[in-house]
Design a protein around this nucleic acid. Structure first.
Lengths: 157, 157
DNA sequence: GTTCTTGCAAACCCTTTGCACGTCT
DNA sequence: AGACGTGCAAAGGGTTTGCAAGAAC
């Protein structure tokens, strides 16, 4: 729906990657991508595993982890590591080039989009003779007043 | 040596934080900060634990973890979560506002400094009625030619 | 004296791995 | 047929926790 890239394009991209790398195109791998496309938000490997089994897919954690890894390698997925949490994934095409602001008080995560960050990445990479693939920017911030931050953990600096 | 902020200033800042928060100023907490100041590089909690015990400090992992947490809360330390690795820490004052470029082929991490990233953070935070504390930007990049990347894991997309 | 901190070991969570069975090519 | 992928459960590594003893206030 709010999808920039439709599922067919993604499936084709994934199939092409698998073929090129001589990985096998199994129904499990296809199903994982289908379910991810239905989610349209951040998710952890375990959330996906639970969701899939709840929807009737019979799939193991091992396969979920391994497929997420493949999808990340071919840049269909973006993998995030927020502080203290397990790895979270999302479709790169869902909201291209967005980043995250994290409240250090309550842990709330706000997505935002800001031009120019990718340009910085490309400039830096080129300076090292490399090519930028993508980036992850996390801005840590606080509410001006603890009261404003309703989920305050009582740990503010 | 290449220190922007000397150890006495940091110790004072930490003591002040502890007092204000009504945490106790213990010799273990002071020692952790001392040893970190001596390292002047990224380190993991376990590396610090091993280093300290090797140098004759008797300290437990639990105390190391808990002190790192306090030092991160008062922004003396910056905590990084690189892909697939355990948390790494470094003094915020060691190299202010620097970021990291990570080779997705070999995992090599290059530190760089680029003006303007903090400004972006402040602008975004202010737009949300918040105050930026710091940020973490990771740029993922590849070598143009696999051969260039000597530590290539053989997994390139 | 009370409350917080430490140290130790066990528990915990997320992720990876070994192996037997199944399946893609 | 052969190599690779899957599922299961167990192992693994990093981090947190419960509890008794000790230290800061």
């Amino acid at each position: 729906m709010a999808q920039q890239t439709d599922i067919e394009t993604l499936k084709h991209q994934f199939a092409e990657f698998l073929r090129r790398k001589q990985y096998r195109n199994t129904p499990e791998r296809g199903k994982v991508l289908d379910r991810i496309a239905e989610m349209d938000r951040h998710f952890s490997a375990d959330e996906l595993y639970v969701t899939m089994n709840a929807k009737g897919d019979r799939i193991s954690r091992a396969t979920v982890y391994s497929t997420l890894d493949l999808l990340t390698k071919c840049t269909i997925l973006m993998k995030h590591r927020f502080q203290g949490e397990s790895a979270h994934y999302e479709l790169s095409s869902r909201m291209p080039d967005h980043d995250h602001l994290i409240c250090v008080e309550c842990g709330r995560i706000v997505e935002f989009r800001e031009r120019g960050i990718d340009d910085i990445g490309e400039r830096v990479a080129q300076g090292l003779g490399m090519t930028a693939v993508n980036h992850s920017l996390q801005i840590f911030a606080v509410c001006p007043d603890p009261v404003t931050c309703e989920h305050n953990k009582g740990d503010e600096a």
